[in-house]
Simulated assay, not measured.
Amino acid sequence: MSSETITADAAGTWQLGDLTVNRVGFGAMRLTGSAAFHLGTPSDRERSISVLRRAIELGVNHIDTAAFYFSSLRSANELINRALAPYPKDLVITTKVGPVRDPSGAWQPPARPEELRGQVEENLRQLGRDHLDVVNLRLMGQDSVAEHFGALAELRDAGLIRHLGISNVTGDGLAEARSVAPVVCVQNRYGLQSRSADADDILRVCGEQGIAFVPFFAIAGEGREQGAGAAVSGDDEVLTAVAGAHGATVSQIRLAWTLHQGPHVLAIPGTGNPDHLVENVAAGALRLTADETARLDSLPS
């Protein structure tokens, strides 16, 4: 498919609270290196900056990031700040708190409720902002969702955060969070052939409640997310056939299938490759037929 002139509004828009975003956004994790949290060879700084600026040119107005997205010499937040500040008025930056990494990159126990303010302030400092548009509580086995979410609700009331979301959550955890404060988005692992047992139920509940559902690892599954132009091992014949019918890549079809799961589903594919960025954005213009969707739905997850 021709992707040169396709922009991020091709898939339509959705609301994160009172903030309107195009359904195809951008995930910043891969900007810091060749793989998630990679501490070896850092990414090329100028290329990462150019990818971010190109994303804005293509109409992306929703960027997902986190202070713990860093690698040797690179920080996703600081790259975003360098590339895009002063920020476009319609740009929504979503970040996450909860996970903790020490300066060497090693994972530590997740933040306690009283430590979340420090994480929010670190995101503010790195991004150069006086408030955060959306903050997701990224769950890492915490016993009490309510205690952590309540701490973020207090920061929202203090004006440091505009809206709250939650990530890696079960259905019961989502209900617990919603009993504390409004939830504008859920970030969970979800993709064709890569989703948890209760993922479809959570997606449905989000649609019923008007909550954005924002899958991560939507292209190639957990641990192997790739740009739209990259090869995905074990491509199914059905995927290959559907991609061929649209003149698209298999990864574009995976993104299109995800977006077809409901108007409340947002995509945040990440890449450090400018060509893959263009292809990811163009996937929002793909329209699968009912037969194609049914064939893809039949693939084992």
Rank of each mutant, 00 (worst) to 15 (best):
N280V: 11
R82F: 06
S251Q: 13
V60E: 02
V97W: 01
L296Q: 07
E122K: 15
G25H: 05
R204D: 11
A8H: 09
D9S: 15
V265N: 01
T5H: 12
A111T: 13
V60N: 02
L192M: 13
D275K: 12
A199R: 11
S298V: 08
G17N: 10
E46D: 14
F213Q: 06
G128F: 02
Q187W: 01
G171L: 15
A228C: 11
T20I: 15
G98F: 04
E122R: 15
I161H: 00
G272D: 10
A106Q: 14
V100Y: 00
L79M: 11
E208W: 03
L174E: 04
P42C: 09
A111I: 13
S167K: 06
G234W: 09
G159S: 07
V184W: 03
T94E: 09
S144G: 09
L31G: 00
S167W: 01
I80V: 13
D172C: 05
G221E: 07
R112E: 09
I63R: 00
D172Q: 14
G207E: 04
G221Q: 07
V100R: 12
G33T: 15
P42G: 08
V242K: 03
P215H: 06
A243Q: 07
A10I: 14
I6Q: 04
I161R: 02
Q126E: 11
L164R: 13
L259C: 05
T32M: 03
G247R: 10
Y87T: 14
D133C: 07
A199S: 15
D9V: 12
I202L: 15
L288C: 06
R189E: 13
G262F: 08
A228M: 11
S251E: 09
D157A: 12
A241W: 00
V24W: 02
E46Q: 12
F217M: 05
T271D: 00
F37T: 04
V51H: 06
V134G: 01
P109K: 10
T289K: 09
G229R: 12
V120D: 02
A55G: 14
L19Q: 12
L203Y: 04
D130H: 12
T95C: 10
P42E: 08
R53L: 03
S144E: 15
P269R: 06
I93T: 02
L164A: 14
D143W: 05
L73D: 13
E208C: 04
G150F: 03
Q119H: 10
D9K: 06
P263H: 07
P113R: 14
R156I: 10
